[in-house]
Design a protein around this nucleic acid. Structure first.
Lengths: 335, 335
DNA sequence: CTGTTAGCGCTTTCAG
DNA sequence: CTGAAAGCGCTAACAG
């Protein structure tokens, strides 16, 4: 594995000449540059990150932090998608991605990759303890928060337009003649929940429909299916349900079908997120699409920009959503 | 952000004293060590990876490479699980995970994180071009291959006991009275496919059942559901099917149900992998469990060991599998 | 036990 | 345009 010295010797030039040639710096003649480059190529030389990082004080690594207990990789396709978006955009900019899953029990210290400056910046995806996020922001390391809004105004954020998404979905149901509409959510984090619920209730209000509290089942960590059962067991049941995310919706659908009801004939269903599974279910799920990869790449662009400019802007990007009509909503014919 | 110099100055000792104290080296009195440690703590000092890496020529990072087009994060829960296992084991050993998704079109060069020595070793998960793996092995960087066997004997491998898993599954079906058993596989990589298929046919052979070629549908990149339809459209159809993985099995099940057949009454089904979804489907899927996280952590332990010992052993670990009986297999009553 | 010193591989002044 | 030299933060060999 050749070092810069080997190239310099082979090309009969100084170390600095090689450095300049490799890094496309001026102050070197085209002729020498090409000669050096050719030799470097032949010897398969690549500047080691060790020396370069130390000198530049930049690792060209970006950290990504997600709570482990969210099963962000295997369990929830939402995070995976964001992560894929992040990876792709980082790769384009030839940065590397250092992945850290936050253990449930933290020791109060920042993760090693941050403490030891193995990364130039960090992207925080998904819900996370506020104090933890606060510590990171205070540490001064460039950071971007993806998805649930962090209360501090001191950090760049990339957020879903939760409110509008829920509004759109609800309006869609109303447009199809539904008036008795339920809302089910379980383990969604607080901020997103509030936004989605408020989009839901605003849509009802704007259409002059009064919200039936008994149609709203929320919070708690039981599978969304518990909520669903409870809802179906009630005296009066809605004709349509908005779920706070697709995973909930899908397990809710299973319950509905188990009860012998048909989707969408007996019950219309709308989800939120548009995960891959939603196209696979039968019927396929009408849902609110969230541009997950896009959110990831926006986060990366933001962080790279602030690295380049050396400033920590605290802008917030709200990524738009889109209603995707599939097969789980039917038009309610007035009886 | 204090450096080692700041600590040395504050503690009135030399740089090396601080270094020794921090790294728990001998040749330093307990008294001074504690004093230094206390000051370091107070000043929130953490040795920067920049200097340390350069000096030690070790980054304490491990790279993980997976083909991007496998959608290893969002699409295939198998890889995600392995990845979670890797991350966990790395974290325990305070290594960081650098994730690289291999683009479809490669440029023939090794990924930047390898070229520039940003990682001390690399774990290759899932199918990958042989020449690519070969290049990495040749580069001398410690590497571990997870899952599909690489033909070269020069690399540490962690493999699934594919053959035994398929054998177990097939035997299970036979034990339940099935004789007409189909085998469906689509985009599985070649090596795993061969192993699983051979386990399947060996089990048949050992039970004196002759394999009906028309019951075997394989290869091609259509969704496994195409195979399933073709199989069900045939004159004679099997009473049970072994799918080469759960994802295939699940989409196969959807087809079966769409055709108005019941699982397991009209058709028994066994999968392979035991992904989370398999517990969720109805009926839940009988399948062959693969210890994915375990494979990930074994891979890590292997690579860390060879890093420590400075040797590249080329051992192969075959991780056992286990048949998980759930609801998709019924006993065939002789008619 | 402690401190001085050299040097890891690279970039960058700065003098020629 | 070129090269010599300093130094990024840290560790280790060695001298005291």
């Amino acid at each position: 594995m050749p070092g810069i010295k080997d190239i310099a010797r082979a090309a009969n030039v100084s170390l600095s000449a090689v450095s300049k040639a490799i890094n496309g710096k001026p102050d070197i003649s085209e002729a020498t540059r090409e000669r050096i480059l050719k030799i470097a190529e032949e010897m398969d030389y690549h500047p080691s990150a060790f020396g370069r990082s130390l000198k530049n004080m930049r690792s060209e690594n970006i950290g990504v932090i997600i709570r482990r207990d969210l099963q962000p990789l295997s369990g929830n396709p939402f995070y995976s998608r964001v992560l894929e978006g992040i990876e792709g955009e980082l790769a384009i900019n030839s940065y590397s991605l250092v992945l850290h899953l936050l253990p449930k029990q933290q020791d109060g210290r920042l993760p090693k990759m941050l403490r030891e400056k193995k990364v130039d910046g960090v992207i925080l995806v998904g819900p996370m303890e506020n104090s933890f996020v606060g510590d990171i922001i205070k540490s001064g390391l460039p950071a971007v928060v993806v998805d649930p809004r962090h209360p501090s105004g001191d950090v760049t954020q990339v957020l879903i337009d939760n409110e509008r998404g829920a509004y759109l979905a609800t309006q869609h149901l109303i447009d199809h003649g539904h008036k008795k509409i339920g809302f089910i959510s379980d383990e969604l984090n607080r901020d997103s929940f509030i936004k989605r619920f408020s989009g839901f209730s605003n849509a009802l209000k704007d259409n002059g429909i009064v919200l039936d509290k008994s149609f709203v089942r929320t919070a708690g960590h039981e599978q969304g299916s518990e909520h669903m059962k409870a809802l179906l067991d009630a005296l009066e049941i809605p004709t349509a349900i908005l779920f706070a995310n697709d995973l909930n919706a899908l397990s809710g659908c299973a319950v509905i079908k188990d009860m012998g009801l048909s989707i969408p004939d007996d019950m219309s269903v709308v989800g939120f997120d548009d995960i891959f599974l939603s196209t696979m279910s039968s019927p396929s799920l009408t849902t609110v699409r969230v541009y997950k990869e896009e959110m990831g790449s926006i986060a990366v662009r933001n962080i790279l920009k602030s690295l380049k400019d050396g400033i920590v802007d605290s802008s917030t990007t709200i990524v738009p959503v889109k209603l995707i009509e599939r097969g789980s909503v039917s038009t309610l014919t007035p009886s």
